[in-house]
Amino acid sequence: MSESSKIKVGISVGDPNGIGFEIILKTFQEKNLFKKFIPIAFAHPQNFFEESEKYKLDTNILEVKNIGDIQENFLNVIDIWDNPFPINYGKDELTAGNFAFSSLEAATTALIKNKIDVLVTAPINKKNIQSKRFQFKGHTDYLDKEINGESLMFMISDQIKLALVTDHIPLAKVNEFATKNTIIKKIKILEHSLKSDFNISEPKIAILGINPHAGDYGVIGEEEETFLRPLVKAQFDKGIRIDGPFPADGFFGSQSYQKFDAILAIYHDQGLIPFKTLSFGEGVNFTAGLDRVRTSPDHGTAYDIAGQGKANHNSFKKALHAAGEIFLNRKKFNDAVNQN
């Protein structure tokens, strides 16, 4: 792959007191990745050099002043802070949150301006990153505000693809947010993503129920009968290959998820518990529905092992590859649409 066709990957480093630096450095020890990607991290170069030395890694690191100076075959690092961050492994600090946001903001700006092709984000601490400039429950909500489109939290792995109607909201507010209009929007975003981002021409989608046992025909709850089941039928009649609502426990227990290209869960734990049980450490969080591509690993800051050299970088590497594949699939899809 020529340099011009290599995918420019912007990387936000996440909470510096977590495992972000470590998983990024470990990933790009694999020199074959440079055949496809030109990685660009937004941080302080000295932190990368010091962390690489600490873990005895041989990652090729290059300090650059701006994106115009990047080179292939290196992990390019653009300095966004005046001084290196004083890492305090495993500690929840406001300064670490400020650093994480600076990295995310710089990378997102580069993505919007087409200076990079895709964005891969290392884990943040959702508490210490909060500030006047970041009042969001996570990456997804922030990117939804900054980038064109309407976001959908979409977890993907080799075993399963699973999206959420609602994501980071309290359980007590699920019914308030999981309205008929919202569910219809999420179904349409999911179907389009499966076609454009994953090259599935006629995707099959399953939707889970809201109540235990999907309401047991009104015995446990009425939402499935009053609006969810009719909603699903209406979307099916319009040409979307969707089935359900299914009781979540039996659906995963019987491995029925294997019969579908993607599952739409109503709320966070309903979907993320089975997803992470099946795929933890190998899964990817993809923000579908936006006109730019962003992925991240399926885990958090891992303060408990930060600085110990124990972090597994598989999920970050999976996120890197997923971002590249989605970017190329979407380009191919859009080119075909424009030709028609």
Results as ranks from 00 to 15, higher is better:
Phe275Val: 01
Asn199Phe: 03
Asn329Ser: 07
Ala206Arg: 01
Ala319Thr: 06
Glu150Cys: 00
Ile160Glu: 09
Leu264Tyr: 00
Ile156Met: 01
Lys186Thr: 11
Leu25Arg: 01
Gly68Ser: 13
Ala100Gly: 05
Leu94Ala: 08
Ser296Arg: 02
Gln339Gly: 02
Ser52Cys: 14
Ile183Asn: 02
Phe34His: 03
Thr277Asp: 06
Tyr89Trp: 10
Leu57Lys: 03
Asp158Gly: 07
Ile205Phe: 08
Asn88Ser: 14
Leu62His: 11
Gln235Gly: 05
Pro245Ser: 12
Leu278Val: 11
Lys8Arg: 14
Gln46Pro: 06
Leu328Phe: 09
Ser157Met: 00
Gly283His: 06
Ile240His: 01
Lys26Gln: 13
Phe227Leu: 10
Ala311Tyr: 10
Glu282Arg: 15
Ile112Ser: 05
Phe74Arg: 02
Pro84His: 10
Lys195Asp: 00
Phe286Trp: 10
Phe251Lys: 03
Thr59Lys: 06
Asn66Asp: 14
Ile80Gly: 00
Ile129Gly: 02
Asp158Cys: 04
Thr287Cys: 08
Phe251Glu: 05
Phe48Trp: 01
Glu72Leu: 05
Ala214Phe: 08
Glu223Asp: 14
Lys331Leu: 07
Phe85Ala: 03
Gly20Val: 04
Ile207Met: 08
Pro247His: 10
Lys36Glu: 13
Pro16Ala: 13
Ala172Arg: 15
His139Arg: 11
Met1Arg: 09
Phe333His: 14
Ser131Pro: 04
Glu50Cys: 03
Leu171Ala: 11
Asn73Ala: 09
Phe34Cys: 09
Leu111Gln: 01
Leu328Arg: 08
Ile19Arg: 01
Val284Pro: 01
Ala178Leu: 08
Lys173His: 12
Ile200Ala: 10
Thr95Met: 12
Ala248Ser: 15
Ile210Asp: 07
Lys35Asn: 10
Gly97Ile: 07
Ile40Tyr: 05
Lys331Gly: 08
Ile205Gln: 00
Lys31Leu: 14
Asp197Gln: 05
Lys161Ser: 14
Ser2Gly: 07
Ile7Lys: 05
Thr27Met: 10
Asp304Leu: 07
Leu164Asp: 11
Asp243Tyr: 15
Asn60Ser: 10
Lys126Pro: 04
Glu222Val: 12
Ala319Ser: 15
Lys8Glu: 05
Pro123Thr: 09
Leu272Asp: 04
Ile210Val: 15
Ile210Arg: 03
Phe198Cys: 01
Glu282Cys: 12
Asp144Ala: 13
Glu146His: 11
Gly309Asn: 11
Phe327Cys: 09
Ala262Gly: 07
His321Met: 12
Glu202His: 12
Lys56Thr: 02
Pro123Phe: 01
Pro297Lys: 09
Leu119Val: 04
Asp141Pro: 00
Gly20Arg: 03
Asp117Ala: 06
Tyr267Gly: 02
Ser254Lys: 07
Gly300Phe: 12
Gly68Thr: 11
Lys115Gly: 05
Phe227Gln: 07
Glu146Val: 11
Pro245Trp: 14
Glu72Arg: 02
His44Asp: 15
Phe101Tyr: 07
Ser296Gly: 14
Ile78Cys: 04
Ile147Val: 15
Lys65Ile: 13
Asn73Lys: 09
Gln308Lys: 15
Phe34Val: 07
Asp15Ala: 08
Tyr55Trp: 09
Lys310Leu: 15
Arg241Leu: 15
Phe251Ser: 08
Leu104Lys: 06
Phe37Ile: 05
Ile220Gly: 11
Thr226Ser: 10
Ile189Asp: 10
Gly307Arg: 04
Ile80Cys: 00
